[in-house]
Design a protein around this nucleic acid. Structure first.
Length: 408
DNA sequence: TCTGTATGGGGAA
DNA sequence: TCCCCCTACAGAT
């Protein structure tokens, strides 16, 4: 579940698991991965990690030995990872390499253990000799001051013409915020997601008035003053979107690592923490980029008028272009004879292969597509357990998409 | 068996 | 702005 907090927890995980471990030999990449090879092989090296927003940097540091002293000392290598939708690190025995492990670092000891980058969907990527992506802004969690400044001093940028919920996913300004964080942050401030971003952010200062706020003196002697100070702090905090972009992700980190640690495959704390994202009773609708925005109450004036999902649009376009059914039928027939590809892939292959357009037909829509045509509706969210008391092990794991990636 | 959806982002038009 | 990369799963048919 990779947003800023998960990337940071991933870096902590690597540092914890690889502390004192010597690695050796080449870094191996899966055949199927399209990310670059990592040309690093060393008799002995260590691995450490750091995070910034939605990136993690691994540093491979060669250990000098008597054997290598004579040779030219090998330089450390940084590899910068982005996790896409499903990336994470694991540290396992060599024989227990996870499915979809795409980049593997082997320990020197026998039996060997492996630090692996695992990514089922392969939307993630890595860059050998990488640096933090220059177009990404300061980290919302660990570069708070420059993050604020970067937003406040660039409010005239046309990027801020868009609805606030969409701007929050712009990594040039909000490096680390993702889909669940934007929902949680806007929900806490009761900001409608589709109000113009500039309207929300105008008037905020580069300096955070709350930052480094010291408790008033004599708290114990003067509890009333202490309570007042607390109220002010809470009020200020709730009034400042940029501060919540910092503190809400930190809350996830402080959940204790259970949000990430794949060994535990336990997201119950994280699920209990969520107040809006995927929560029963909340509304959801697609933003202009086709991503689901979870919220409560009024969506705001810039809400998209077209509620259709990207997939629905795509399907309807296909059906308008040609007789989709015949293509599908052909693909299925071929699939049955060869058995080598999935029907979906076959459909794609047939569509791209054909040099003559499919026969002209009148546009047709399935019943489902017609249903999609119904005017603006906030699609009903699927049932999702929250704050339940220990449902059956199986049902808990299967009850939420949030747990899926790490179910063994 | 089919369809829709998922914590992201690069690149073509 | 739209399409695409890709796998896994839940729920509908």
């Amino acid at each position: 579940m990779p947003e800023g907090p998960e990337l940071h927890l991933a870096s902590l995980f690597v540092n914890k698991m690889c502390e004192g471990v010597l690695f050796s030999g080449p870094v191996r990449k899966s055949e199927v991965s399209k990310s670059p090879d990592v040309a690093f092989a060393c008799e002995a090296y260590r691995i450490s990690a750091a995070s910034r927003g939605k990136e993690v940097k691994l540093t491979l540091t060669p250990i000098k030995s008597d054997d290598t002293k004579a040779k030219e000392a090998q330089q450390p290598m940084d590899i910068v990872f982005r996790f896409g939708m499903s990336g994470f690190f694991r540290f396992t025995a060599e024989g227990e390499l996870p499915k979809h492990a795409h980049l593997c670092f082997y320990s020197k000891e026998k039996p060997r253990r492996v630090l692996s980058y695992v990514d089922a969907r392969r939307f993630g990527s890595w860059q050998p000799h990488g640096t933090w992506q220059p177009d990404r802004g300061p980290c919302i969690m660990f570069e708070y001051k420059s993050f604020r400044e970067n937003v406040v001093t660039h409010l005239s940028d046309r990027a801020f013409d868009r609805p606030i919920c969409e701007v929050l996913l712009n990594q040039k300004y909000f490096n680390g915020i993702g889909n669940y964080l934007r929902a949680e942050i806007l929900y806490r401030l009761k900001i409608p997601p589709f109000v113009p971003a500039r309207t929300v952010l105008e008037g905020l200062e580069s300096e955070d008035a709350c930052e480094d706020k010291k408790p008033v003196k004599n708290d114990i002697l003067n509890p009333k003053a202490a309570r007042t100070a607390q109220k002010i702090q809470v009020k200020n905090e709730s009034a400042d979107l940029l501060r919540l972009c910092h503190t809400v992700p930190l809350e996830v980190i402080h959940l204790g690592g259970k949000g990430y640690d794949p060994e535990k495959a336990d997201y119950s704390d994280f699920e209990a923490w969520l107040q809006c994202y995927y929560v029963d009773g909340m509304k959801s609708m697609r933003d202009h980029n086709g991503r689901t925005m979870w919220f409560k109450g009024d969506p705001g004036p810039m809400a998209p008028k077209d509620p259709k999902s990207p997939k629905a649009k795509k399907r309807m376009k296909k059906e308008d272009d040609h007789d989709y059914t015949s293509v599908k039928k052909e693909a299925r027939t071929q699939s049955e004879t060869t058995g080598s590809k999935t029907v979906k892939k076959k459909i794609k292959a047939v569509q791209t292969k054909k040099d003559v357009p499919q026969k002209e037909t009148t546009p047709r829509k399935t019943v489902k597509c017609l249903k999609m045509d119904t005017p603006q509706r906030e699609h009903k969210q699927p049932a999702r357990r929250r704050k339940t008391t220990e449902p059956a092990e199986g049902s808990r794991r299967r009850s939420s998409r949030l747990t899926r990636q790490n179910v063994k």
